[in-house]
Every structure is written in structure tokens, then in C-alpha cells.
């Protein structure tokens, strides 16, 4: 039932963001529900990716970005003094447009997060092995890769690489997974495999996915956010947004009149 109270995974209030002088986000206020897949759609340059990249503060790696407003993840303001960037990024996983496994083995890719966040004496081979098996099982690749854990991750097929990029987030037990067009480099089979994977993960995570593919948003997400020119235009349940858009700009976009 949609009117039951739910916890929000991500909330923003009046979020504005500038790349130098260019304002990429304009007063974005959004509440993304926990345990659902929410998709972000809109034409190129509308700020979807920028918004996504606010939530693990990875936008800040470029010195020329400034922002105002409030961002809360699981009720906690991520700009509070007691929030460390490292802990934030541990709790918020990100999957990128092009699969970007690190240039090390499959095994090392999956334990990379554990190794950088745990002191060496708390880690042992058994623990790491378990984490690898669990993560690969969860993304459905354990049977394929259990004998190839020492292969270089960048030699895998693209679909496997992207699944690996999801798998390497899991040992850190994130609460939120951000996906930036995770299927745009994949073929049809790879796309549906990633979508199934998202579906199997969704209960335990808040998943926010940027997509260019309206059909994907429609079939794979529970809620949908439409953005245009840096503004949030409409946010509702996916079928609602596609069948009965409230804003005429949303209607025009999903009918393909521009974009």
C-alpha cells in the first residue's frame, strides 16, 4: 500500500549544485524510499548523473563544484561534521556507466573494499574467501568464476565485469546502491541479467538507477523520477508516471516528443 509510512533511503531539500558558473541542479527536493528501485530519467544534460553523484559526494573530486541544500541518507545529513567521507562511501555503493573493475584479479577486486576499510589484523584468508564466495553467489557468478578467481578482472566479458562491479560493493554491506546507466555498455542479454540482479537485491538496499532507456525504467523500477534542465519535474510510482503523467513536460518526454 503506497500510503503506508516508509523510511526514506535518500532525502534532499532544495539541493542546488553549480559547476563553476553553470547551475546543474535547481532546488531539487526528493524522497527516495528504502527497499525500492527508483529510476531517474530525463534527456541528456538534465542533471540525473549529477544528482546521483551527490549522494556519495564523488562530485567533490572536481574542485570547481559547489552545492547548497540538504542531503540526508537514511535520515542522516551527509554534510554533518561527524560523517566521514570514507564511511559515507562505504555505506553508499556506486556502479558506473562503463564497467570499471580495477586492474587486479577478480578476487582482489571483491576484497578491495574490505581490505581498505578493515585493519589488517581483523582480516584473514578465511574471512576474505567467505566474502568472495558470498558476493559472487549473490550476483550469480560463483559457479562461473570460482575456478578463475585469479584471472584479471579486466579480461572478463563486459556483462561479467559489470556484475563484478556490483559484487565488489556487497562485502561492505552498503545500504544504498547508486547506478549510473549500468547497462548502457551491455547487450540485451547483459542488460536483462543486470536488471534481474537489481530485482533480487532490491529488498535489502535502496537502489537508485540513472537510465537513458525509458523502457528499462518502466520495466525495472518501482518509482520513477523525471528531471529536466536541472529541475525535478515529477516523482511517482513508475506505472503512474508512464500511464498518467501529471506534468505536460513529462508526458511529452515519455511520448518521445523531445529528448
Amino acid at each position: 500500500m503506497s500510503d503506508q509510512p516508509q523510511q526514506f533511503g535518500i532525502e534532499t531539500e532544495d539541493l542546488c549544485l553549480w559547476y563553476e558558473k553553470f547551475q546543474a541542479l535547481i532546488d531539487v527536493s526528493v524522497k527516495v524510499k528504502d527497499g525500492l528501485i527508483t529510476s531517474l530519467i530525463g534527456p541528456s544534460g538534465c542533471g540525473k548523473t549529477t544528482l546521483l553523484r551527490c549522494f556519495n559526494r564523488i562530485n567533490e573530486r572536481y574542485g570547481y563544484v559547489t552545492s547548497t541544500g540538504i542531503i540526508k541518507l537514511l535520515g542522516k545529513n551527509i554534510y554533518d561534521d561527524d560523517v566521514s567521507l570514507i564511511e559515507l562511501r562505504k555505506a553508499v555503493g556506486m556502479v558506473f556507466q562503463r564497467p570499471n573493475p580495477l586492474p587486479i584479479s577478480v578476487y582482489e577486486n571483491i576484497v578491495f573494499g574490505l581490505k581498505i576499510h578493515t585493519s589488517r589484523k581483523d582480516l584473514n584468508r578465511v574471512k576474505l574467501d567467505e566474502a568472495v564466495e558470498q558476493a559472487l553467489t549473490e550476483v550469480g557468478m560463483w559457479n562461473d568464476l570460482k575456478d578463475h578467481l585469479n584471472r584479471r578482472a579486466i579480461d572478463l566479458q563486459l556483462e561479467q565485469q559489470q556484475k563484478l562491479c556490483i559484487a565488489r560493493l556487497l562485502p561492505l554491506k552498503p545500504r544504498i546502491i547508486l547506478m549510473d546507466e549500468p547497462c548502457s555498455a551491455l547487450d540485451v542479454g547483459g542488460t536483462s541479467a543486470i536488471e534481474e540482479l537489481m530485482y533480487s537485491l532490491k529488498d535489502r538496499y535502496t537502489i537508485l538507477i540513472v537510465t537513458h532507456n525509458m523502457a528499462q525504467a518502466r520495466r525495472a523500477s518501482d518509482e520513477c523520477i523525471f528531471m529536466l534542465l536541472g529541475e525535478l519535474i515529477e516523482h511517482s510510482r513508475t506505472e503512474e508516471l508512464f500511464l498518467n503523467p501529471k506534468d505536460s513536460r513529462t508526458a511529452d518526454y515519455i511520448e518521445g516528443r523531445y529528448g
Binding site: 564523488i58 562511501r89 558506473f96 578491495f112 576499510h117 565488489r168
Partner: peptide, 27 residues
């Protein structure tokens, strides 16, 4: 070294120094 490696490691919470010695120097 492709920037995507830096972003990947950064998004996993690696510090700049960890990125340098765990990813960039080997790569």
C-alpha cells in the same frame, strides 16, 4: 592510468593515498 580506476576506488571509500599505492602504482 584510466580515470575510471580512480573513481571506482574512490567510490569504494579509498583515500587518495590508498588509490595511489594500491591502484595507480601497480597499474
Amino acid at each position: 592510468v584510466p580515470d575510471s580506476y580512480r573513481e571506482a576506488a574512490m567510490a569504494l571509500g579509498a583515500t587518495r593515498w590508498q588509490i595511489v599505492y594500491k591502484i595507480l602504482l601497480p597499474a
